[in-house]
Amino acid sequence: MAGDLLLFHIDTIVVDGTPMAFEDGSGTLTGAARFENETVLSASGDDYSRRKRIPTLFKVRAQFGKSLDPQTLTSQSEVQITARDTQSGRRALMPKCSFASMGDLGGGAVEVTWAVLAPIQWL
């Protein structure tokens, strides 16, 4: 029963068919639901909620080397990214992602963000 309660921890990332070196524990998905609900206050009576679209972003602290350079990442458009938790076997397949931003270079691993342009497929 305890095996069913594992948290999703990204430990393998494949970008456009190529495995990516990254800082362990740095892969995160923000806005995976693709929406959030806001509370709208009523002047009187019950309040209500309003659904709002939000962007889905995939962030990771990339480690550049011979197989990965900043130019390669910044030119990526509509690539497929797979984030996998090898312990649980769960995968998040992001079929359509484009480069969004890159953090400061020169201090070790660099935060790279992709915009996830299609719903995540949980496998």
Rank of each mutant, 00 (worst) to 15 (best):
D11I: 04
K52H: 10
T28A: 10
V116C: 08
Q87P: 01
R91A: 15
E111Y: 03
I54V: 15
R51A: 00
V116Y: 11
Q71E: 14
G3A: 14
I10D: 06
K66D: 15
D11T: 02
K66I: 08
F8C: 03
T86V: 09
A32L: 03
E23Q: 15
F8V: 01
A115D: 11
A118C: 04
C97Q: 07
D85P: 06
F58D: 15
A109I: 00
G25Y: 00
D104Y: 05
L57V: 15
V116N: 04
V14C: 06
D104L: 07
R91N: 12
T18L: 14
L6T: 10
D4K: 13
P55C: 08
E23G: 03
R51K: 15
G89D: 08
R53L: 10
A115M: 11
R84W: 04
R34Q: 11
Q80Y: 02
R84I: 08
V60I: 12
T56Q: 04
L117Y: 03
I120K: 07
F22C: 05
E111C: 05
M1T: 11
I10F: 02
N37G: 03
S67A: 14
P19E: 05
Q87T: 12
Q63P: 05
G103I: 11
Y48M: 03
R50L: 09
L7P: 03
T30R: 14
G107L: 14
T12V: 13
D4P: 03
L7H: 13
L41C: 02
Q71H: 13
M102N: 06
V110D: 01
P70A: 02
T72P: 06
F58E: 13
P95A: 03
D104N: 11
T39P: 00
